[in-house]
Lab assay of single mutants.
Amino acid sequence: QLNLPENTDDWTKEDVNQWLESHKIDQKHREILTEQDVNGAVLKWLKKEHLVDMGITHGPAIQIEELFKELRK
């Protein structure tokens, strides 16, 4: 059970990391997002292209984008 703020805009980069870990996103990809200071407010704007530009491969980038879309519903 994750204990994250209800509003994703309030998520810290550590919260984002924890959420991605719960969805089995590889540590190396989570570390990239942490290094790039991606918090919840930033995550909602990220598209696959942004994630790929940061060095995340296409498969996980699509997965992260789709997971966040599902979360926002």
Rank of each mutant, 00 (worst) to 15 (best):
Q1C: 02
Q1S: 10
Q1D: 08
Q1A: 03
L2W: 07
L2R: 06
N3L: 03
L4C: 09
L4K: 03
L4I: 08
L4W: 01
L4V: 08
P5S: 07
P5A: 01
E6R: 03
N7I: 03
N7D: 06
N7E: 08
N7Q: 07
N7P: 03
T8D: 04
D9C: 10
D9T: 10
D9R: 07
D9F: 06
D9L: 10
D9K: 08
D10F: 08
D10L: 06
W11V: 00
W11F: 11
K13S: 09
K13E: 06
K13W: 05
E14N: 10
V16L: 07
N17I: 02
N17S: 06
N17R: 07
N17M: 07
Q18G: 06
Q18K: 12
Q18L: 09
W19A: 02
W19V: 03
L20H: 00
L20C: 04
E21H: 10
S22Y: 10
S22P: 01
H23T: 08
K24P: 05
K24E: 13
K24L: 11
I25F: 14
D26K: 13
D26P: 10
D26E: 06
Q27F: 11
Q27H: 04
Q27D: 11
K28W: 07
H29N: 13
H29S: 14
H29E: 15
R30P: 01
R30F: 00
R30C: 11
I32L: 07
I32W: 04
L33W: 02
L33I: 11
T34V: 07
T34P: 01
T34D: 06
E35K: 10
E35Q: 06
D37K: 15
V38Q: 04
N39Q: 10
N39R: 06
G40N: 00
G40F: 09
A41H: 14
A41L: 12
V42Q: 15
L43F: 05
K44T: 12
K44D: 13
W45E: 15
W45L: 14
W45N: 15
W45S: 15
L46A: 12
L51H: 03
L51I: 01
V52N: 11
V52P: 01
V52H: 12
D53V: 08
M54P: 03
M54N: 04
M54T: 05
M54F: 14
M54D: 04
G55E: 07
G59H: 15
G59F: 14
G59T: 15
G59N: 15
P60D: 15
P60W: 14
A61K: 03
A61N: 02
A61I: 01
I62F: 15
I62N: 15
I62K: 15
Q63R: 08
L67H: 12
L67M: 02
F68D: 07
K69A: 12
E70N: 11
E70A: 10
